[in-house]
């Protein structure tokens, strides 16, 4: 692989927009991805994730804006850009009539690999994606997991510095999901990776940064922890106490100066479980410490006490919910 200018981000998406008729599928999206970054691309269905990825990989031309990958502009130099990108399209398409091996061989050839080099590349990805058992099987006879991994293998066959993966774990079972996630994370150390997903825990486990996109616009951009902190629940304290009525605990907790309010999550016969909301400008941990001291003083039988880091799904819902109901399906 050629050396790329280390000072510039590997992928620069500049004010990218795409209209389908009157509908603005992607509306002025800009972001950068550097080598060593794994960018999670989140958003409700139809938010413009796939359209953005298709523009980055040069499948569809943007209406406005452009993408620069490895210093090459997709509008002026599409072939150069395509050379350094590996792409897993949505639904992992592959030629059904080919065997896994001949399909990978075909892609390697299109990627300009020949002879010994090609052989090596093909057997490397077969090993990496655990395809040994199905190499000679025709793709239309494969299970969804194998088909998915075959298409994934295709995307990394030329060891590209940039990977664009559209829902790489879609349709896989939990073990396979875990494998793919681990693979992405490992490869992310030396590559610039963008992947889209619906699964929020995936973002937390594999991404160094996440972007949430809604109706064609970026609505959040940050590390998973930064995003989580946007949650209303971030910084609240969960307290579980046995053998004391929940109302009584709430009463006591509310008397603390650093507590804004407290609410009961559940009692149902078991321990009293409540969520304590901090006052503004309370530093991390202070609330939990105060509640803990109170519990000792009151001699409560505490079963659980922890500070909630916030939940991505809650942040996700808050930013994207308002009017996705009118979303047009494409």
């Amino acid at each position: 692989m050629a050396d790329f200018n280390a000072e510039k981000p590997m992928i620069q998406v500049k004010n990218l927009a795409k209209s389908f008729g009157p509908k603005r599928a992607v509306d002025g999206v800009s972001f950068n991805v550097e080598i060593g970054e794994v960018l999670g691309f989140l958003g409700p269905n139809g938010a413009g994730k796939s359209t953005t990825m298709r523009m980055i990989t040069g499948f569809i031309p943007p209406t406005e804006g452009t993408v620069v990958v490895g210093g090459f502009d997709i509008l002026n130099n599409p072939i150069q850009v395509k050379k350094i990108i590996g792409y897993l399209p949505e639904n992992a398409p592959a030629y059904a009539d080919m065997s896994v091996h001949s399909f990978l061989d075909f892609v390697a050839e299109l990627r300009g690999l020949r002879g010994e080099e090609k052989k090596k590349a093909v057997s490397r990805v077969i090993e990496m994606c655990f395809l040994e058992s199905v190499v000679n099987q025709s793709i239309d006879t494969l299970s969804k997991g194998f088909r998915h991994r075959t298409c994934f293998a295709q995307s990394i066959i030329h060891d590209p510095p940039v990977l664009v993966l559209d829902e790489p774990t879609d349709g896989l079972d939990p073990n396979q999901k875990h494998e793919v996630r681990t693979l992405i994370k490992r490869m992310g150390e030396k590559k610039a990776i963008i992947f889209s997903t619906h699964i929020l825990e995936e973002v937390e486990s594999a991404c160094t940064r996440a972007i949430i996109i809604d109706r064609g616009k970026i609505v959040a951009n940050g590390t998973p922890n930064e995003l989580k902190r946007m949650s209303e629940l971030a910084g609240t304290v969960i307290l579980k106490v046995r053998n004391i009525p929940a109302e009584e605990v709430v009463q006591k907790v509310k008397e603390l100066s650093c507590v804004k309010r407290a609410s009961i999550i559940s009692t149902d016969g078991g321990p009293a479980c409540l969520r304590v909301y901090p006052q503004q400008n309370i530093t991390n941990g202070e609330l939990a410490r105060a509640v803990g001291e109170l519990a000792i003083q009151q001699q409560w039988r505490v079963e659980e006490l922890h500070t909630d880091e916030g939940r991505l799904d809650e942040v996700f819902r808050n930013i994207t919910l308002p009017d996705t109901t009118q979303e047009v399906s494409r």
Partner: peptide
């Protein structure tokens, strides 16, 4: 129909 057109046309070919 199969969606392979997306694969084919994002290869480094015209």
């Amino acid at each position: 129909r199969l969606g392979t057109i997306e694969l084919l046309l994002t290869m480094p070919i015209t």
